[in-house]
Structure formats: structure tokens, C-alpha cells
Amino acid sequence: MEEKDNLPLFSKISASLTGFSEMELWGTGMMETYYNYVMGKCGESSPTKLDLEYFFEKAKEIYLGDNNDENWIDTQIQTWIFPPTSYGGLAQLIITLWYTGNWGLGFNGSPISAQAYVQGLIWNAGETHPSGAKQPGFGSWNIPPINIKK
């Protein structure tokens, strides 16, 4: 199997797991880094290489089938992918990676790189910026966050 084969699937499943759109995820510039990192991390111990294979197999089933209904996809993820007991807990590790840049849950995690910390989506979710990066400028904290939507 080509290393990059599952990247599009990784992108799709990441979007479903995090609640950020695929483009938003690509926008962080971390998509390929995370994909490669996860591929590299799954090995002997949990989550294993096999966990990862089954994980993508399931993802294929969900995304490459005929059913595009978001609710249906969500139910599938809830049942098969999200539980910490599935695939060595891969789903929550992936969510944490996107949200915080950490590999590992909670206090067991640490950033896989400086850039991963800076690109953590938890800050976007909270309408702020990572502490110590992406500075918003003098006095910006005096008013609600900039929110420019259509």
C-alpha cells in the first residue's frame, strides 16, 4: 500500500471527528504532517499497525459508500470509530492531535512539534489564539474577538 493512499480518508475522518471542515484542517498546514505522524506512531503497542489498517478500512466503508448523509456518518463514527475501545483509542488521539498538537491524551500528551502547538484548533474553537503565538495586536483583548463572517 502506498504511504499516501489513505491521506484523503484521513482528511475526511479528521473533519468528522474534530468538527472542523476539511479545508479548515488543510488550512493549518498540518494535514500531511499529522497523517505521517499517525502512520509512524501506530506500531507494536496500542494503537497497532493492525488497528490503523482496520481503522482505515472502516473509514472507507463509511465515506466511500453511497450514503452521504451527515447524520448517518455521525452515527457510524459514534458506533464504530469514536469509542476509546475502538482501534486502540485512535480516534481520540487524532482529535487531541488536531486540537492541541499533542500526541497522547490529557496530561500524558505533549506537542509533537512547535508548529503543532501553534496550529492547535482548540484555540480557534475558543475564539482566541494559542498562548504565545499568532498574536492579535495591541488592545485586541479590549473588544470581542474579530468575527468576520459572510
Partner: peptide, 10 residues
């Protein structure tokens, strides 16, 4: 102009 700085960064 101060508020503009935030927009610049954004």
C-alpha cells in the same frame, strides 16, 4: 487604527 492591527494579523 489600533483595532486595525488586529485585522492585519488576522
Amino acid at each position: 487604527l489600533r483595532d486595525g492591527i488586529g485585522l492585519m494579523y488576522d
